[in-house]
């Protein structure tokens, strides 16, 4: 982790930093933080992802308007809201996955550890390298379990010991014990929950800083869901996690902070409230949040 951040601070350079707001707040903390495990103890609010006045259009039709969010490092941040509120769209902005959809335009900034990812000279491929993603439906490649995990590392020119990396990633994803004797079998032979953990292992293997999860349990049964939730809680010591969920209980169970989004009549998603999870669920400051969490709509 250290190597990355130093490299980043080097590259960002003083000149750019001066122009950016919030920069002075983040940079010292980035430089200081040395070990993910220790950070769990004193959870200072280091901002990992700074979303600033983000709006997005699909071929001219606005989907998100003016969303600003500071997502803390090494915590789990949940995005909740009724379907169509733009929470998945927002999530997919964080690793520029929306670039793949023709006709998407956006306004505003997203900075990951201070670096603006939508600058013209930033390569979306490199962004996604650092911001892993786990999808709604488990989507292992039709390759062996081993190759599924090794894929990202291979294409990113990993120079270390691949066997160790695969093992470490599978262990971290709590899947190693179940698949250690059948690494050469197709990833598609696993159960749904195992597939989803394989996808998490695949994301971990490229050592991203951030993991985005787009309703990762929506296709899973309750037992598999619980295993994933346990895993998410374990992973937050190492990664910044942003999870979109339509399940409010899940948000309450796994997340540290929760953002509630809502789309009005005109189907444009806006951020309503962003608070520590406990606070949002027990004492929401906005009446619309209260209506939603008490089940009055959505």
């Amino acid at each position: 982790m250290l190597g990355l951040r130093l490299a980043m601070v080097d590259a960002v350079g003083e000149g750019i930093m001066d122009k950016e707001e919030n920069r002075s707040l983040e940079v010292p903390e980035v430089a200081i933080s040395t070990n993910g495990a220790e950070e769990l103890e004193d959870r200072t609010e280091t901002v990992a992802i700074n979303i600033d006045a983000l709006s997005l259009w699909y071929t001219g039709v606005q989907a998100i308007e003016n969303v600003s969010l500071q997502i803390p490092e090494n915590q789990v941040t949940a995005l909740i809201g009724p379907s169509g509120c733009g929470k998945s769209t927002l999530l997919r902005c964080i690793n520029r996955m929306n670039d793949l959809i023709p006709g998407v335009t956006l306004d505003g900034h997203i900075k990951i550890h201070g670096e603006s990812i939508y600058e013209k000279d930033v390569d979306p491929v490199a962004v996604r390298r650092n911001v892993g993603m786990v999808f709604q439906k488990p989507n292992p490649f039709p390759k062996s379990i081993y190759e599924n995990v090794a894929f990202g590392a291979r294409i990113n020119g990993y120079k270390g010991n691949m066997d160790e990396l695969v093992r470490a990633s599978l262990e971290q994803a709590a899947l190693w014990d179940e698949v250690s004797d059948k690494l050469s079998e197709s990833g598609l032979t696993l159960s749904g929950g195992q597939q989803q953990r394989l996808c998490i292992a695949r994301a971990i293997a490229v050592k991203p800083e951030v993991i985005l999860m787009d309703e990762p349990c929506s296709a899973l049964d309750p037992i598999a869901t619980q295993r994933i939730e346990d895993l998410i809680r374990e992973l937050r010591s190492t990664y910044t996690i942003v999870i979109v969920t339509h399940n409010m209980q899940q948000a309450a169970r796994v997340s540290d902070k929760t953002a509630f989004m809502l789309a009005g009549e005109e189907r444009v998603g806006r951020l309503v409230e962003f608070s520590p999870t406990q606070e949002l669920f027990t004492n929401p400051s906005d009446s619309r949040t209260e209506d939603y969490i008490t089940g009055r709509f959505g």
Partner: peptide
């Protein structure tokens, strides 16, 4: 407003030492 589909123009600054591409 700018298009999200602009082609990337340079090497990213986000590079980990173990991963050399």
């Amino acid at each position: 407003m700018r298009s999200a589909n602009d082609p990337p123009t340079s090497q990213s600054r986000l590079v980990l030492s173990e991963y050399q591409t």
